[in-house]
Design a protein around this nucleic acid. Structure first.
Lengths: 339, 339
DNA sequence: TTGAAAGCGCTAACAT
DNA sequence: ATGTTAGCGCTTTCAA
């Protein structure tokens, strides 16, 4: 089966007995068309099931009303919520979203960006800052407007709508230290090509260094954001020469994997070991014990990214980066260090 | 900021000193072009950062290499995994995915389908069968190829890549009855405009009816697929005149919300009440107790939907619907009925 | 192997 | 308020 030939403006024109230009106006600037004509045209459009041909429109107007979102993964709840909000905001403005996921590969990201550009995206949403020169060069060469989210940098050359991962990690690590923990381990995301994972590690390291008092980071194990992989990382840490009293995780999925494995091994959280997460996705309040984690304003961030990108697309040069605050959410997976 | 004028085929032609036709060939049928010429063209393309203009291409070839996915929600993990697999499979075939979410509203679905069509989608992925005549009429009128997923019907007029929700619900309910439960309640998804929710309810009802032996469905509470809402549904059931020994939930998120609330109220699962889920998303194995649920082959389903849709787009008329099997996964949230 | 030229469906400038 | 018409960038015959 193939698509029937879609009706064109000319078909509508024939039925409505007007010129194609009038129909174009009737669709794009209804107030420039007589009411009766407009209604006649609407009827014809309805009857034929006409939708404007995107290609023709893009070619003639040099605008597609499409924006592209290039995200590491759709199945990570962390992005899903924000992207959904992003899409809804765009949808309200009559803009359609193209999505592509990269699986955390910068090579795949480059390919996807090109593909989205080729599909006429007027602008892009990107996640994070770690990408090769090849990619940034291409973006600059083509002059595509884009917004970078899920992170924040004080760099006027680019548009950020996000939060400071390092600062947020510093805060939760400080909180952990405040609970008396001195022997700390971390299950982090894979830091290669991932500035968010890197900065979360840096924030934890920094908090420990600043704190002093014999606090030590015994071990950092990097793991993909998957329950099963994180469970293995937990094992690796527990089988090490020195067992920590707390594991700070770079993400709630990692923390949930660790908690699940702890339960399987009969290790009680937080009595024997504390575990913290990051992101505050739904999972965090469902695991037992509920996760102490960092709340990230995903939905607001997604909405704001959309608004800012739309402003930029309409040549509003006053738009600037937006930094969101995060906050530590205390739940029961973090307790004072056992004696 | 606005987009710089993108380089066109003519720009590349000037640099590479060939005609635009040759470049088009070099891009689309490289073996029809002399090797030396091809390389010269590649260099020019690279230097200019050229990407083919989507509109021009769509107009000339009447193909966009874009397909649209219209899903109820991106933040429901149930769809996220399948859609990601769907997108990856498409990406391998050089096809880009447009996504729109409907928030479970058929009106929104109609709008999104039109929007995706207008954006040149060559084909569509839709979820479920419950949609108004207006929508099916439009699809038929335009003759868009589409695949319906997440459900299955024996209807040769449409293409399904999914599973039988009613059968799957029947199976888990039968399993629950086999554990000795007679007083049963259900937390279902909102059934309006949602055939999957409806069929899951029907499957449970049917199993109870077929079983007989005094098994009763005390109560069905419908709830949005959100943790907090489901927790309230749990309260509603527990405060009813008759308390069930098991709650069958239409979805893992609903079950997780119920388990969480049970924990908060000091009701132990499964000792005092059993709870089952549906879908087997990551959440199911992370909650405590882990959920007895129905495994749905989300990833395979997403991949298969992509393959079948792509076949259909390339005028392969041999493609037909595909029914996936589901299976009950026994974990600890379901136990024999307490005496 | 390559080039010339028509035309895809639409918008926008200009004309009426 | 409506019609006429020239392209937008690409693919695809047809010719060389």
């Amino acid at each position: 089966m193939t698509m029937k030939d879609a009706p064109t403006l000319e078909d509508v024109a024939r039925v409505a007995r007007v010129s194609t230009a009038t129909i174009s106006r009737s669709i794009n600037m209804p107030n420039k068309v007589a009411k009766a004509t407009h209604e006649r045209i609407q009827k014809a459009i309805e009857a034929l099931g006409y939708t404007p041909h995107f290609g023709g429109r893009a070619l003639a107007s040099n605008r597609t009303n499409t924006i592209g979102a290039v995200i590491p993964s759709m199945s990570n709840a962390m992005f899903a919520n924000g992207i959904q909000a992003f899409q809804e905001e765009l949808s309200d403005a009559g803009v359609t979203m193209l999505v592509a996921s990269t699986g955390y590969s910068t090579e795949a990201e480059y390919t996807q960006i090109r593909s989205l550009m080729a599909h006429g995206a007027d602008g892009l949403l990107l996640i994070g800052t770690d990408r090769p020169k090849k990619t940034t060069d291409f973006l600059a060469l083509r002059g595509v407007p884009y917004v970078i989210s899920w992170c924040y940098k004080d760099d006027p050359a680019q548009l950020f709508v996000g939060f400071d991962n390092q600062k947020a990690a510093f805060e939760i690590a400080t909180c952990v230290l405040g609970y008396g923990h001195r022997n700390i381990a971390m299950i982090a995301g894979i830091s290669k090509d991932n500035d968010r994972a890197k900065n979360r590690i840096a924030g934890v390291k920094n908090a420990i260094k600043v704190y002093g008092h014999g606090a030590r980071l015994l071990r950092i194990v990097e793991s993909p954001y998957m329950l099963a992989e994180s469970a293995n990382a937990f094992d690796e840490i527990m089988e090490g020469p020195e067992v920590p009293s707390v594991i700070i995780c770079g993400n709630d999925v990692l923390a949930a994997g660790a908690i699940t494995r702890a339960r399987e091994r009969g290790i009680s959280v937080p009595q024997q070991i504390s575990i913290t997460g990051f992101d505050d996705i739904g999972l965090a309040s469902v695991v037992d014990p509920a996760l102490t984690t960092v709340r990230v304003p995903q939905i607001e961030m997604g909405k704001a990214a959309a608004r800012i990108l739309l402003s930029k697309l309409s040549n509003d040069n006053t738009v600037s980066s937006l930094e969101f605050k995060t906050e530590v959410v205390l739940r029961s997976s973090l307790a004072r260090v056992p004696l």
